[in-house]
Amino acid sequence: MKKYASFFRIRFINGLQYRAAAYAGIFTQFAWGFMTLLMFWAFYKSESSSFPMSFSQLSSYIWLQQALLALFMAWFFENEIFETITSGNIAYELCRPTDTYYMWFVRNVAVRLSKVVLRSMPILLVCVFLPSPFGITLPISSKAAFLFILSVLFGFLIMVAFNMLIYISAFYTISPMGIRILAVSLTELLSGAIIPLPFLPDGLRKVIELLPFASMQNTPFLIYTGFLTGTEVINKIILQIIWVIGLFVLGKCLMKNALKKVVVQGG
C-alpha cells in the first residue's frame, strides 16, 4: 500500500510543477465558462419557459463543470501509457512487484487531482462573487454539500475506471487512437459535458441516465444545484456505486486477461 502512496505523491507533486500552465488553464476555463453561459443566456432570453432549470442552477452547473474539469474531462489520456502498450515496454511493468491496474489507476487519479487542486480553488472563489444569476450559489444545506462531495468522489472513480477501460482496449486493438476518439466524443455527449443532460429530450434522457456516463459529472452537479431532491439523490448515488464497482471489476478482468496474453506471446 505504501508504494502506491509514494507513487501518488511523486505524480501529484510533478503535476503541481506546471505553474504557467495552471494560470493559463484557469484563464481559459473562465473564458470558456463565461462564453457557455452567454450562449445559454441567449436561449434563456428568447424563451425562458423552455428552460428545464432555473438560470442560477445552470450557472452553478457550468461553473462546477469548469472548476472540476480536470476530474471529469474525457479527452485526457497519458500517451505514455498507450506507448508502453504498443511498444511492448509493458514487459517492464510486469517485472515490477506491483499490480499494473492499480498503478495506472492511482496514476490517473493523482494527475487529475493535482490539476484540479491548482485550478478549482481560484475559479470557485471568484465565481462566488459573480453577480447572480451568473455566479455560483452556495449549497442549500450541509447535508446537500456532503452528498455532493460523496457523489463527486464516486463520479470521479467512474471516470477513471472508464479511462482504464480505454487504456486496456489498446491491448485488444491495433488502433487505440480510433477507440480514444470514439470514446471521447461519446462520453462528452452522454455525460452532459456538451450540454447538461436536463436539456436533452425527456424520452432519450431517461435511457441515457442509466448509462455510466450520466453518473460521472451530471449526477453530482445536479445534486449540488438542488435539481435532484430527496430519494432521487439517494437512488442516483446508489447507481453511481453500482457503476464504480461494475467498471472496476470489468477493468480488472480485462487487464488480467490481456496481461496473460502478453506473457504467453512475449509482448
Binding site: S175, M177, G178, I179, R180, I181, L182, V184, S185, L186, E188, L189, I194
Partner: peptide, 12 residues
C-alpha cells in the same frame, strides 16, 4: 477509425 472518430466528434 480516426477519421470516423473525427466525424463523430463534430456529430455530437
Amino acid at each position: 477509425m480516426t477519421m470516423l472518430g473525427q466525424f463523430l466528434v463534430s456529430f455530437s
